[in-house]
Design a binder for these strands. Structure first.
Length: 426
RNA sequence: GGAGGGGUGGCUGAGCGGUCGAAAGCACUGGUCUUGAAAACCAGCGAAGCGAGAGCUUCCCAGGGUUCGAAUCCCUGCCCCUCCGCCA
């Protein structure tokens, strides 16, 4: 959520910046709502003041043993007028609040201008594109003997799910373990285990609601929703808290399944396990002091990159352009891994600085010194990494042309020392 | 699932329908004292909104209700705890 006070003072400036994000801020509507709010608030508070004063008088008179009947009569229909004013005030407040909840975060000045993926700016490349002396297969064909079974998933659930079998599942698990251990042991993150189902307040806090209700899987008959990312439960741990400055920075890593309805992505990435309703992710979340968030973004991105490097997967880092930027992010750096099966780079991690946008919704704050001012924290997060896509990258980049996959060094301990994975047998 | 008890400031915990944003203790901050610290003593110390400011308003789980006036009374919901039952 944006700072209303700033928005009030320079709505046109905000509108200008939001254009970069392809968002049309209705300044006229905002100003009208504001004027209404101001009038309703003034009236309500004035009536409340009057009621309080009169009630106090009656109380004092009664304490002196005087007859309070005349004073009570004087109050007249004050109560009625007050409840009408209150109703008006809360109605306009509600409308204003809904209006504000739908405004995305401002893009940072360094965010490239542009409409789509094509306008993202490449920041760096790592690892050469691998050359094969055979035509590389994609992961679906590589695992056609049964390690990946999409048909089985359709039978027991629906499209956009996968069933994995055998050593491939172990590789998937090894990737998870490797990522977690690296972030915990080398990057200083504290691991969290959390619910995979959250209430809507949590989804409002991180910005998935109210705008993206269609993307969530919700449980019927209640207010519970499957998490679309570990970001939601982990960031919401700090909702409604005032932290000691000494507690910052907070760095959490969390491995969770993620559930996405993928509404609006029909026909996109329907082959393989690139875009699934259910996938696993190791998520990095940071809460930092405001002045530390930009450095935090660089560090967090480097932590995610470290995983790719250790796995020896070729990738590039790109700064998302305004049109491609998420709702709550001020800036996002995507890591894209090279997929020989598609002959292109595909997103495998998305690292964002949200500044105080989420913190404002979450009421996640810190006190600078004991007795000092209370400020919003800045929040950041990024995938470190999406496990399913990493598995795909390993299969496609390290195929040997004969149905075997070369297992990266760092995963071998968790694979019982094996150096290759044979996808021809399950 | 059955029965009972609760939800008050960072924590513990008082609170009669009226001067209660709320006693007290702890924690914290400043000061006195001390070479320094501790202890002791003194003082301060919740959050949100509006306003240039003085200040005003709101908040005692949430939402309704009664009343001139609600932390306090009534209703509903949510959550927590205890006991019993069931259970990985």
């Amino acid at each position: 959520m944006l700072d209303v006070r700033l928005l009030r003072h320079q709505p046109d400036h905000f509108a200008q910046q939001l254009k970069k994000k392809r968002y049309d801020l209705d300044v006229g509507q905002f100003l009208a709502l504001e004027a209404e709010r101001k009038a309703a608030q003034a009236e309500t508070e004035q009536l409340q003041h009057e009621r309080n004063a009169r009630s106090r008088q009656i109380g004092a008179a009664k304490a002196r043993g005087e007859d309070i009947a005349p004073l009570v009569a004087e109050v007249g229909n004050l109560g009625e007028r007050l409840s009408l004013a209150k109703e008006r005030f809360s109605a306009v407040q509600e409308r204003l609040h809904r209006f504000l909840l739908e405004i995305p975060n401002l893009p940072d000045a360094t965010v490239p201008t542009g409409d789509s993926e094509a306008d993202n700016r490449e920041l760096r490349l790592w690892g050469g594109i691998p050359q094969f002396n055979f035509e590389p297969l994609d992961h679906v064909d590589l695992a056609a003997a049964g390690a990946l079974d999409f048909a089985a998933a359709v039978k027991i659930a629906s499209a956009r799910f996968v069933v994995m079998k055998g050593a491939l599942v172990r590789l998937h698990r090894a990737l998870t373990q490797f990522m977690l251990d690296t972030h915990i042991d080398e990057h200083g993150y504290v691991e969290v285990y959390s619910p995979y189902i959250v209430n809507s307040e949590s989804l409002y806090g991180t910005g998935q609601l109210p705008k993206f209700a269609d993307d969530q899987f919700s449980i019927e008959g209640g207010d519970l929703h499957l998490i679309p990312t570990g970001e939601v439960p982990v960031t919401n741990l700090y909702r409604d808290l005032i932290l000691d400055a000494a507690a910052l920075p907070i760095r959490h890593v969390c491995h969770t399944p993620c559930f996405r309805s993928e509404a609006g992505s029909y026909g996109k990435d329907t082959r393989g396990m690139i875009r699934q309703h259910q996938f696993e992710k190791v998520e990095l979340v940071q809460l930092v002091r405001p002045e530390a968030s930009w450095r935090g973004l660089e560090e967090l991105t480097a932590h995610a990159e470290a995983i790719l490097r250790k796995l020896e997967l070729p990738y590039r880092a790109v700064a998302l352009c305004g049109g491609d930027l998420g709702f709550a992010a001020a800036k996002t750096i995507d890591l894209e891994v090279w997929l020989p099966g598609q002959k292109r780079y595909r997103e495998i991690s998305s690292c964002s600085n949200f500044l105080d946008f989420q913190a404002r919704r979450l009421m996640a704050r810190f006190r600078d010194q004991a007795g000092g001012a209370i400020e919003y924290v800045h929040t950041l997060n990024g995938s470190g990494l999406a496990i399913g896509r990493t598995l795909v990258a390993v299969l496609e980049n390290f195929q040997d042309g004969a149905g075997r996959i070369h297992i990266p060094e760092v995963l071998r301990p968790a694979m019982g020392g094996a150096e290759t994975l044979d996808l021809r047998v399950v």
